[in-house]
Amino acid sequence: MSDELVRTERLVLTRPVPADVDDVFALYSDPAVWEHYPSRRHTHRGATEELLAHVEESWQVIGLGSWVARDAEGRLMGTGGCDLRLGLAWNLGYRLARDVWGRGLAQEIVRAGIAASQRVRPDIAVTAYLLAGNARSKAAAERAGLDLVWTGPDAGNPDPDAVRLLYADRPLSRIVVRELTAT
């Protein structure tokens, strides 16, 4: 099965296409899904177009990027998967519509992302880089079998008290941790 289309128990994960922009913008512009980082909310469609262009570049260059996650009827549930961060580590991520939180869909995306990253480049660590106050993401990383490898300030966050956590599926060198947490 191509990593561009993956089926989980309840989701169809596909490589984003231009027709996905409006649905993804609706998700990324919803303040409810940005409770832990409101300044990252998309306030104009161009931000979503830039995000999807970055994801497309990842697919073209590396052969893997985030997916658009839809249910069997085609309704957007969210986005997520693995993206290569700074060429150093796979970063697990997902953003789900608020009305589908708590149903285990994040875990389906996380499992699919880990499996795809291991098919594409198993030599690269899988990580999750998240805000300490995001209990759902923390639980998802831990359920995925990732271990906490670093805690520290969130570089670039407008909230000076924000703390980031870095989880990984294997030990990371100090250099890799420094690079991953500096941006």
Rank of each mutant, 00 (worst) to 15 (best):
74 G>Q: 15
45 R>N: 09
48 T>V: 05
60 Q>D: 02
45 R>F: 07
37 Y>L: 08
61 V>P: 09
31 P>T: 09
45 R>T: 13
74 G>H: 15
39 S>N: 14
74 G>P: 15
50 E>A: 07
66 S>G: 15
39 S>P: 11
58 S>D: 06
56 E>G: 01
72 A>G: 11
51 L>N: 06
36 H>N: 06
29 S>C: 01
49 E>D: 02
35 E>F: 07
31 P>D: 06
37 Y>P: 00
74 G>A: 14
46 G>K: 11
63 G>L: 11
42 H>N: 10
34 W>F: 10
54 H>P: 02
34 W>E: 05
50 E>V: 08
67 W>P: 01
64 L>N: 05
73 E>Q: 13
45 R>G: 05
39 S>Y: 12
64 L>H: 05
73 E>Y: 08
44 H>L: 09
43 T>D: 10
56 E>Y: 06
67 W>I: 03
55 V>H: 08
59 W>I: 11
47 A>W: 07
46 G>R: 12
51 L>I: 08
63 G>Y: 11
49 E>M: 01
47 A>S: 09
46 G>I: 09
69 A>H: 09
50 E>Q: 11
69 A>W: 12
42 H>A: 09
49 E>T: 03
68 V>E: 11
38 P>D: 08
66 S>W: 15
52 L>H: 13
74 G>E: 14
38 P>E: 10
46 G>Q: 13
66 S>P: 11
39 S>T: 14
73 E>P: 04
30 D>F: 00
50 E>P: 01
30 D>R: 00
74 G>M: 15
48 T>I: 06
64 L>K: 07
30 D>L: 01
48 T>G: 06
72 A>I: 03
67 W>L: 02
33 V>H: 07
31 P>G: 07
60 Q>P: 01
60 Q>R: 15
69 A>L: 10
58 S>T: 06
69 A>M: 10
71 D>Q: 12
66 S>N: 15
51 L>A: 09
65 G>Q: 04
38 P>R: 02
72 A>E: 13
55 V>C: 08
67 W>Q: 04
48 T>E: 05
71 D>Y: 13
59 W>K: 10
49 E>G: 00
74 G>N: 14
28 Y>Q: 02
45 R>A: 09
32 A>N: 01
58 S>G: 13
48 T>L: 06
35 E>D: 10
66 S>V: 12
50 E>K: 04
62 I>V: 15
47 A>L: 13
67 W>Y: 04
69 A>K: 09
35 E>M: 11
54 H>S: 12
32 A>K: 04
64 L>P: 05
40 R>L: 04
63 G>C: 12
42 H>L: 06
55 V>F: 09
38 P>Q: 05
38 P>K: 03
35 E>Y: 08
34 W>V: 00
60 Q>W: 06
56 E>K: 02
53 A>D: 08
68 V>Y: 14
46 G>M: 08
33 V>W: 03
53 A>F: 04
28 Y>D: 01
55 V>G: 04
30 D>Q: 00
66 S>C: 14
44 H>S: 09
47 A>Q: 14
54 H>F: 12
52 L>M: 13
46 G>D: 10
70 R>M: 09
36 H>I: 01
